[in-house]
Every structure is written in structure tokens, then in C-alpha cells.
Design a binder for these strands. Structure first.
Length: 593
RNA sequence: GGUCGCGUAGCUCAGCUGGAUAGAGCAUCUGCCUUCUAAGCAGACGGUCAUGGGUUCGAAUCCCGUCGCGAUCACCA
């Protein structure tokens, strides 16, 4: 299934135009698409664009072209013309050969090496609180986009960036120091990231109390916010951190280590991983050096107060600060440093950032600023900008307390999968470790598919109360289709599939074949657009098509040995493609369910 | 206000590099388990593709305007 029949048809059409009408037409400009399912045929050529050169009516043109293709393209067995649409039928032997070669290919769908090196940065958590629903979408997108890019033929590295410094983590540190009584993950049994998050909330609570107190004493809101004792203390702590105060650094390290241990548990449950970690505490100084270099070379400029800026007004953007007047770094400074360090590490052609679309402006600025610095990798930056996950009551914002915790959600999904599975009552040993594994597979499959099936750039709605369906267009639907095929295979036993040389395909058999044939193109499309939803939709379509075939045709007890072998081959390839595609989405498939 | 994005069935989403009567799932209703797993299959119901114009043989898809929703325009990250 490597040489693409659609491409062959296009090329032949171009040749036909040359021969029949003595005109030149680019093969790529000819519209070849799959025939509508209520028409006879496999592929359709839209002939309207050719009328300009044929100077004939649509039907005549289509007939000319159809006759030419039938005579010159061996795979074309016949054609029919409806209005300006030329519907081509391909020979059954073409489809069967195509199935045979795909079955022999152990990595069917894998792209040829592109030589491109790509880094994918995703997750990017702050180290002052646990992961939430937004991180889940981010992690799923990042992990699957990386997998898809790699399968499409690129050399891919996954990286994470920890926002491990700044005022936020100091808030947790301070609150723990003052109110924690030495509580640790071990002493409390609380997961490290949740423990640190707990003190972040404590800080906020105390801060608000103090502000109210000061307001009661007659201060204005703004004054109260500035003068709250705990606020002054946290600012002092940040300065001590920046100055490298040993005690502060030790506390910072301890609390961050708790968070990393906690995150790792969540990463494992999510099934995501990283080839390398970056820490802003290690890159913000590199960024500062870059800014100073830029200032020295005249790319940036300094204002009277000492702050350093980049002027992007020539690009339709604003002036942006790169270093504060006190010489400290801003968000952008760190990202400059991280980008530069990453290029040292990888020399990548593309640097993909999986970050929510609220930061579109930031990434434009980052890219243009690196461009101004003359960095060769600036052009390779791609911001995979995804929409926020909204809850029924509106947008998710942690400071409004309307947060869905990642660990909670994972637990609930697995519990929902368990309840549903037990209700169906198909399990032999509901208490076994194998059963628990199955609940995890189904629950995570439902969650991951739910989030990956929508176009990344669109915001999406998540309704935790209604939970997530396990029927219909869902992960478990695809998993179930896979499990049924595995069941047939164990029933039939280990027989060598020999595809028949002469066989007349049924309509449903052919539908499955055509669907399977799309897979390599789907991978390329998904990679080109950095869009896992392309693969997700495809798996559903394939499973759906296969299920139709499955209920209508007997496989193990097929009417003839030829039919049995062909259908086993079809089932086998379908299972391989479903499992392979799901792997790219980070979703497991169960052998039984 | 400037910039960017979005608006398709009651709900959640496909389709958007222009092509045939706009597709799924959920929900509601109706059938199908003595033959490979019914987490399935078949069917019914449901749409002025926000709106007005334009380009085209042809527009949900491209262009312009309008309305609605969101993000962003911090010496926050």
C-alpha cells in the first residue's frame, strides 16, 4: 500500500488531458476523492475544472477521461459518469494485493524518514500546585503529537519545562514555613504536589484575611494589598532566593522535590514521559545574557529607568520589556534562554510548543525576538496553540477555585469504567489484577479519546458531572472493536493467512479495505497539521466500518476458505491499525473486554 | 479600542487545500442476541451551516461587512 493510487489517477488524468485535448495540467490540481457511498465506484474525478481545456460538456469530458483511464491504468476496472463526476471502480485484485503488502509490513503506515529533528515541549507546569484538567489536555496533545510526528518519519524529542521559580512557589514555601508544623508527604500521606498546593491555598487565605483586617483598620483596598504582612514577607523571600540564601534555597529544593515526585506519579498514570527536563531556574540567567548581548549589538534598547526592551512595532506588535529596571527577568527572558539552550542540545529543525492559546501573543513575540537576535532556529518555532478546557459553569481558572484536579479525574474515570464493566457482567474475575488493569485501560481510553478527538485549536467543553460516555464515538468503542477481532483470532487459532488470487469482494469488504488504505495518508496529514484529532477520527471511522462488516459477514465460519482467509486478513490488519493508531494517541487496547 | 480565534442538529463534535441530497455520537423513539463479544448493528426524529453581501459552473468551505462569544494587548507567569 505504499504507492498511492490517488496519485496515480491524478498523473494519468494529466496525461489524458495532454493526449485528448493537447493541454497542460498539473497532476496535483486534479481533484480525486473517494466516491460517495451511495454511488458505484471507489474514487471520483471531478471533471468540471477540465471543461476549460476540453471545451466539451461535462458528461462528454468525463466519458473521454474514463475511457482513457480504463485503457491506460491497469487498476481501473470500469467507470460511470454522473453529471460532472467520473466514478472509477478499481479491480478487486488491486485491493487484495494492497491488503497483502500491508499485512507483510510490520510498520504499516510509518512514514519514510524525513531527516527532520523536532522537539516537542509540553506540560510546562508550575511547581506550586498539582496538575489539573488543562494540563491533561496539554499532556495528551503533546505526547500524541510527538508520537505521530515520529511515526510520520521525524526524529522527535519530548521535553518539559518547569516553572520552578518566582513568587508563586515562594508563597507555598512561606505558608509551609509558618503554618506547616513540619508536615511532609511521608508524615501526612499527602501526595507531594498536593501538599505544596495545599500551602499555596493557605497563603492565599491568610493573605485575604490580612487584607480584610487592614481594610477594617481604614486602609484602601490597594494599600491593604501592598501592606499585608505576609505579602511583604513573600517578596522578601523571593529576594533571598534570588540572592542565593542557603536556607531559602534548601527549602525551595525540598518543596520542589516533593512536587516532582508527585508529578511523576501523575505522568505515569497518564502514560506520558519526557526525554529531557528544563528548569526556568536554570535558564533565566541564560536569557538575561542573551538580552544583554542584544542590547550591546543594538537590537534592543534601554529606557531611562534601566529596563531593556525590544521594539516590535515594525511587525505590528508593541514594545515588550525583556529585563526589568531592577535587572530581573520576566517570563519572556526565560523563554529566550530555554530556546537557546534547547538548540544547543538538539539543533532541531522544528521546535514545537504545546501551550494554550491565551499565549498566542507571547509566542509571536518570542519568535520575532529570536529572529531579531539572528537566531537560526527562530523560523522553526511552532506554537501548537490549543483552546482552553471549559467547564459547564464557564472557564476553568485556578484562582476561582473551579478546578478539576488531574488525579481526581483519573480516579473517577477508572471508577466509572469499572462500574460500567461490572454492570455488563462479562468479567470472569472482577477482583483480579487483570480486571483492574482493564478498568484503567478503558477509563483512560475514554478520557484520552474524549480530549483528543476534538481539533486542538478549538476550545472544548468538559462536563464532569455527566462523566464521559463509554458508548458511541468513544475510546472504548474502538477498544471493543479491537477486542472482538482478538477474540476471533484466538478462536480460529494460529493459521497462516493466504489471500486468494481470484476473489470477488463484497461491498462491505471493500469499504474496510479502502478505509485501511487511507492510514498512511492519515498519519501524514495528522503530522503536517500537528493534529491528533485526525488520527482519532480515523480510528472511529475504521472501527465503525469494520463493525458493519463484522455483523454482516461471518469470518471464522466464512462460506468458502477463500473468504475466510481474506476476511481474517482484513480483521488482522484492522486490529493492527487500530492498536497502532491508538498507541500514537497514547491509548492502550485490551485483548478482551 | 487594536490584534487573533471561534459561531454547523436540543447537547458534544466531524466536514473547511471550493464539488454530488451537510455527517457522526449523545439524548428521544423503533427493531435485531439458539451462529465469531449487543461497550455492537439497522432504522426514525432532528439543520435558513450566526447574519448580509461578493467571487464561482458550483460556497458550510474563499473574500468583505454586521452581530454574538472568547483570548490577548502587565516591569504577572
Amino acid at each position: 500500500m505504499t504507492n498511492n493510487i490517488e496519485q496515480q489517477i491524478r498523473t494519468a488524468c494529466a496525461a489524458a488531458v495532454k493526449e485528448l485535448y493537447n493541454a497542460d495540467m498539473e497532476a496535483a490540481s486534479i481533484a480525486v476523492e473517494r466516491t460517495n457511498k451511495d454511488q458505484i465506484g471507489d474514487y471520483t474525478v471531478v471533471v468540471f475544472p477540465l471543461l476549460r481545456v476540453s471545451k466539451k460538456k461535462p458528461e462528454e469530458t468525463a466519458n473521454d477521461l474514463g475511457a482513457y483511464l480504463q485503457a491506460n491504468v491497469p487498476q481501473v476496472s470500469g467507470f460511470s459518469v454522473i453529471k460532472g463526476f467520473l466514478n472509477l471502480s478499481l479491480t478487486d485484485s488491486f485491493w487484495i494485493e494492497t491488503l497483502g503488502s500491508a499485512l507483510h509490513n510490520h510498520e504499516y503506515g510509518k512514514g519514510t524518514p524525513t531527516g527532520q529533528k523536532i522537539t516537542v515541549e509540553y506540560c510546562g507546569p508550575n511547581t506550586n500546585k498539582p496538575l489539573h484538567l488543562g494540563h491533561i489536555r496539554n499532556m495528551l496533545l503533546g505526547y500524541s503529537v510527538a508520537s505521530i510526528l515520529e511515526f510520520a518519519g521525524n526524529e522527535v524529542s519530548k521535553v518539559n519545562i518547569y516553572n520552578d521559580r518566582g513568587i508563586a512557589i515562594c508563597k507555598s514555601m512561606l505558608a509551609w514555613q509558618q503554618f506547616g508544623n513540619g508536615e511532609t508527604p511521608e508524615s501526612s500521606g499527602i501526595k507531594g504536589d498536593h501538599l505544596v498546593g495545599k500551602y499555596y491555598v493557605v497563603f492565599d487565605k491568610k493573605y485575604k484575611e490580612q487584607v480584610e483586617q487592614l481594610k477594617a483598620e481604614g486602609l484602601t483596598e490597594d494599600e491593604a494589598k501592598k501592606k499585608a504582612p505576609i505579602q511583604l514577607e513573600v517578596q522578601a523571600m523571593l529576594l533571598k532566593w534570588e540572592a542565593g540564601d542557603a536556607e531559602t534555597i534548601a527549602l525551595w529544593k525540598q518543596m520542589n522535590d516533593w512536587v516532582y515526585a508527585g508529578f511523576q506519579v501523575t505522568f505515569d498514570k497518564m502514560g506520558v514521559d519526557f526525554d529531557r527536563d528544563y528548569f526556568e531556574s536554570e535558564t533565566y540567567l541564560l536569557g538575561r545574557d542573551l538580552v544583554l548581548e542584544g542590547l550591546a549589538s543594538g537590537v534592543f534598547f534601554k529606557k531611562e529607568d534601566g529596563s531593556i526592551w525590544v521594539d516590535l512595532t515594525d511587525k505590528g506588535l508593541d514594545q515588550k520589556v525583556l529585563l526589568r529596571s531592577d535587572g530581573t527577568s520576566v517570563y519572556l527572558t526565560q523563554d529566550l534562554g530555554t530556546a537557546d539552550l534547547r538548540y544547543d542540545h538538539y539543533h532541531m529543525d522544528r521546535n514545537v510548543y504545546v501551550v494554550a492559546d491565551e499565549q498566542n501573543y507571547h509566542f509571536k513575540v518570542l519568535q520575532l525576538t529570536l529572529e531579531k537576535l539572528g537566531k537560526p532556529y527562530a523560523a522553526g518555532i511552532y506554537h501548537l496553540s490549543y483552546g482552553l478546557v471549559e467547564l459547564p459553569h464557564g472557564r476553568m481558572k485556578s484562582r476561582e477555585g473551579n478546578v478539576v484536579d488531574a488525579d481526581d479525574l483519573i480516579r473517577e474515570m477508572v471508577a466509572a469504567a469499572k462500574a460500567q464493566t461490572l454492570e455488563l457482567g462479562k468479567l470472569e474475575n472482577p477482583e483480579s489484577e487483570e480486571a483492574e488493569e482493564l478498568f484503567r485501560t478503558i477509563g483512560m481510553g475514554a478520557l484520552k479519546y474524549f480530549m483528543l478527538r476534538v481539533d486542538p485549536k478549538k476550545k472544548m467543553l468538559f462536563n464532569p458531572e455527566e462523566s464521559i460516555d463509554l458508548q458511541g464515538q468513544t475510546g472504548p468503542f474502538v477498544q471493543y472493536s479491537y477486542a472482538r477481532i482478538q477474540s476471533i483470532k484466538t478462536k480460529v487459532g494460529d493459521i497462516k493467512i493466504e489471500l486468494p488470487a481470484n476473489y470477488t469482494l463484497s461491498a462491505l469488504e471493500k469499504e474496510v479495505l479502502i478505509e485501511l488504505y487511507q492510514y498512511p495518508a492519515i498519519i501524514q496529514e495528522s503530522a503536517r497539521n500537528f493534529d491528533p484529532s485526525v488520527v482519532a477520527s480515523y480510528t472511529y471511522n475504521l472501527a465503525k466500518t469494520f463493525n458493519k462488516f463484522y455483523v454482516d459477514h461471518s469470518i471464522a465460519n466464512a462460506e468458502t476458505p477463500e473468504a475466510k482467509h481474506l476476511r481474517l486478513g482484513l480483521a488482522d490488519l484492522t486490529a493492527k491499525v487500530l492498536a497502532g493508531a491508538f498507541k500514537l494517541l497514547g491509548i492502550d487496547v485490551p485483548e478482551r473486554m
